[in-house]
């Protein structure tokens, strides 16, 4: 058992002396986004997991391969999600009639009367925003992963991708599907289709991807690729 507490305390490097601000190439001065405490972080520290000493915010994940992982998983999730849109998502039979619904149909069902804005919101939360997020990540970090220089607008794209995170709700939707199936159980025979499982895999990959999303690493690498 590694004493992680120990690692954290030797790894953080509180910026006591600010005399070298802006001078040093190897050291980067960053402020904790949550509580504003200053730290000087060099490559050695960025290679191990560190937390802010005051508020505990994760400052670095210590993942060197973060970029390739993030881009690869964003690509996988986006592809799976696009496939999941058009294959049968749920199946419902009632008295001999069987209805097979794709994810597109589930969302389109809201497109009546006053429910149109709600339909757009659901469409955005479960499909458009997650997809947009993946595409922005691929656009901003894809070239960096292949050691090419970053495309113009990459910084804005990455910033939007990070800000969109709370609004991408595919995993909340999956719980909603499970609840809906239970509610339907006495009305009709229901079954999940292949689209459900594809979306479930995409959600799991995205959750795993989040553990690689070290902002410090992503921004440092992107910055390097922009120069």
């Amino acid at each position: 058992m590694v004493n992680t507490d120990n690692i954290r305390h030797t790894a953080w490097n509180e910026c006591a002396d600010l005399g070298d601000f802006g001078m040093s190439e190897a050291k980067q001065i960053i402020a904790c986004p949550v509580c504003d405490t200053l730290y000087a972080i060099d490559d050695e520290i960025a290679a191990v997991p560190t937390n802010c000493r005051r508020c505990g915010h994760r400052l670095t994940y210590g993942e060197r391969a973060a970029i390739a992982g993030v881009v690869g998983m964003a690509f996988a999730s986006a592809t799976l999600m696009l496939v999941a849109l058009f294959v049968p998502f749920l199946e419902l039979s009632n008295g001999g009639r069987t209805i097979s619904t794709s994810l597109v149909h589930v969302v389109a069902g809201f497109s009546r009367g006053i429910m149109v804005p709600l339909g757009f919101a659901v469409l955005g939360f479960i499909i458009l925003l997650p997809l947009l997020r993946f595409l922005l990540l691929i656009f901003s970090l894809g070239p960096v992963a292949f050691h090419k220089s970053a495309l113009p607008g990459a910084a804005i794209a990455l910033r939007i991708a990070i800000a969109l995170k709370p609004w991408a709700m595919a995993e909340v939707f999956m719980v909603g599907v499970a609840v809906a199936l239970v509610k339907l159980s006495d009305l009709a025979f229901t079954d999940v289709g292949v689209g459900f499982w594809i979306l479930a895999v995409a959600v799991l990959i995205t959750a795993y991807q989040e553990t690689f999303m070290c902002r410090h690493t992503l921004w440092t690498e992107l910055n390097r690729a922009q120069q």
Binding site: N94, T101, V122, G176
Partner: peptide
Amino acid sequence: RWSMIDVFVVAILSTLVQFGSLA
């Protein structure tokens, strides 16, 4: 964001269950 569960449940139910006046 997890409060959205019920909204999604309603979305799924109202799309799936359209058997005319029967249900």
